[in-house]
Structure formats: C-alpha cells, structure tokens
C-alpha cells in the first residue's frame, strides 16, 4: 500500500513515517507543496496524507490541482486548521477525510484503514474478510478457518493488498509500485519470495500465478 505523506514538520514526520510503516504502508515523505503536486501524479499512490500549511504551495491548492487533473487517490487532510469552515473548505477541495492536529496516532491509523476500505468498496468492518481469510489489521495477523496465522510486516502488507483486490490480475511491477516506496530497491525476486511464504502459510492456491502476466488472489475457498 503506497502512501504519500506531505508534512512540513520534520519532528512530526519522524514520528509518522515509522508509525505508518509499522502499519503496513510504503511511505514516501515530502515537505514542499509544489513537489507534492507533481509527485502524486507521477506515482501510483493508494492513499495520500496531506498537511495544509505547506511551504511552497498551500495544501488546499495542491489538492484542488490534483482533483482538477482527475487524480482520484484518496486524500486524508491532516491539519491544524480546525474550524468547521476550514473542514468544509477541505472537503470541497476534494479531501476524503479531514483530521485535525493534535490527533491520536491510533485515530490516524484507523481513519486510513477506513479510507482504504471505502475506496475499495469494502464494507466498514473491523476485520478485512476475503476469500475465506480474515485479516486483523490492528494485530497484523490472519486467520484461516479460525486458526491464527502469524505474518511478518511485509507479508501482511502484501496479503492486505491482495485481499483488497480479490480476483484482480496484479502484475509484478504493479505490486512493486504499490508495495514499496521510492527509496526501496524494487527487486522482483523479493515479491516472488513473499508470495511463496504466503502460500506456505495459507495454502498453495491462495495466490495464483499467471505466467508472464502476474498474480491473482483466489483465497482458500477454491
């Protein structure tokens, strides 16, 4: 799950980046509004966390530009501007959610989860349920038929992505783009390794390989 964090306060970003990474997001962090305007269009982010009081360009303007250029990525506005007029301004500019500072870290994580599910039209439930697998995002562990399965961070991240796109054909490069941030080496072998580990833990048929095309989440039901 690729996440773009646009936040000009270094101390806050220093807290948020590890928090988001712990929760299974591949995080890119930008400080300047102008950079954010460009980078969000160039990279396939799944979700964006946007501060409004940015150097270079105001967050509202950046958001308006994104929406004007038909960028549909879900945006959570994270700001100190807490009046209702500001909130409305944010929603009008195209924000999907609005969270004011200071916030509880769990609140941010929960809202991001809810937002991701909403954009994938998954019902608002506390556990992600697809293909006979239940994924507890808070504890980052899966269960198949009631039997708990422990997952590493990378495995959780990958499984969640598959479960949010059940039945879709996901190419290797697509997975690399959505699972790793810009800093990380995108080695396709790593993806292969993680997929094999998931198959070992959840069953061979969970993820189907389509030679030359990519992978498809089938779940344990079949």
């Amino acid at each position: 799950m690729r996440l773009l964090l646009v936040e000009d306060n270094v101390a806050l970003a220093d807290e948020l980046v590890p928090l988001l990474q712990r929760n299974g997001y591949a995080v890119d962090w930008l400080v300047d509004g102008r950079d954010a305007a460009v980078q969000a269009s160039d990279n396939p982010y799944d979700i964006i966390v946007l501060d409004l009081g940015l150097p270079g360009r105001d967050g509202i303007e950046v958001l308006q530009q994104w929406r004007a250029s038909a960028l549909s990525t879900a945006v959570l506005v994270l700001t100190a501007r807490d009046s209702w007029a500001d909130r409305i301004e944010g929603l009008k500019a195209g924000a999907d959610d609005y969270l004011t500072k200071p916030f509880h870290p769990e609140e941010l994580v929960l809202r991001l989860q809810a937002l991701v599910r909403r954009t994938h039209s998954v019902a608002n439930q506390s556990v992600l349920d697809a293909g006979g697998i239940r994924l507890d995002e808070a504890r980052q562990c899966a269960s198949v038929g009631g039997a708990p399965v422990q997952l590493t961070g990378s495995e959780f991240q990958m499984l969640r992505y598959f479960m949010l796109h059940p039945g879709s054909l996901l190419s290797r490069s697509h997975l690399a783009e959505h699972l790793y941030d810009n800093e990380r080496e995108r080695d396709s072998n790593v993806i292969e390794v993680h997929i094999n580990r998931l198959r070992r833990k959840l069953g061979r048929g969970v993820i189907e390989t389509r030679r030359g095309q990519g992978y498809c989440f089938r779940g344990t039901a079949e």
Binding site: N9, L12, E15, L19, A80, R81, F103
Partner: peptide
C-alpha cells in the same frame, strides 16, 4: 500561534505512543 502549537502537540501525542 495556534497552528504552530498544534503540530508539536501532535508530535508529543505520537511520542506517548
């Protein structure tokens, strides 16, 4: 001032985590 204070407060709150 209020905006400037809120971000450090957000940092503090994250630190308590």
């Amino acid at each position: 001032l209020s905006h400037a204070l809120k971000t450090p407060l957000a940092v503090l709150r994250n630190l308590t985590d």
